[in-house]
Amino acid sequence: MNIIVPIKQVPDLVEELEVDASGKGLDREWLKLKVNEFDDHALEEALLLKEENGGTVTVIALDGEDIDKALYAAAAKGADRVVKVTGDFEVPVPNHTAARALADVIKSMDCGLVLTGVQSVEDRDGQLGVLLAHYLGMPHISVVTHVSVNGGEVTVHKEYGGGVVAEYEATAPVVLGIQAARETPRYVPVAKVRQAMRSTALEEVAAHAADAGAGSSVSRMFKPESGGHAEMLQGSAEEVAGKLAEIIKSKM
């Protein structure tokens, strides 16, 4: 079964985020990007399924900052094809736009499964996988933690709260929003990514122009006002530990 995995770069939340001068977006000048962590899980699950059942894994992404590096890293991990959809996209690109552009390209590919990360930190207009499924006319299941393939049928687990999962069977092709791969996403050393840069053909496909966008726009971005109800304890680690010990004892 051929598996397609759309990936994207998102801001790394470890860095401090600032609002830009327009007051409507992030200041992207110093922003550090990384692959959406759930996309990493989707790719891992796709590679594991390929190792079990054969087939191919194609990783696809819209053009954007640092995306080549991410695609080469996917190739180094074992993706058979890496495809970049080129075009003049808004930053960050709304998921409606991304889903339409991706659907346009995926439509002409032979695919049994599309695995997306279940969500990203930038999904202001909804989750990509479900949008993509509906533009492709495929069914979808999100919050997936287990996938197995048997011919043209897939069995998946969808996760609820408290560790309860629902098992579904679906007839491929289907789009799955992956919450967690069964293994921790594999790591590739930089040397292997460099090697992939030399040996991998990064395919480019142009997106169709004129997109309708998300149907909504940001009018204001701001840091959440609460700004910490927490009373911050100051001092050395020793001093702070002393204060914490007192507080904890008084609450128990």
Binding site: L17, V19, S219
Partner: peptide, 14 residues
């Protein structure tokens, strides 16, 4: 709430 709760945004719908 976006960015893992680190930013809030107000949206205007068409």
């Amino acid at each position: 709430q976006l960015y893992g709760g680190k930013m809030s945004v107000e949206s205007k719908v068409e």
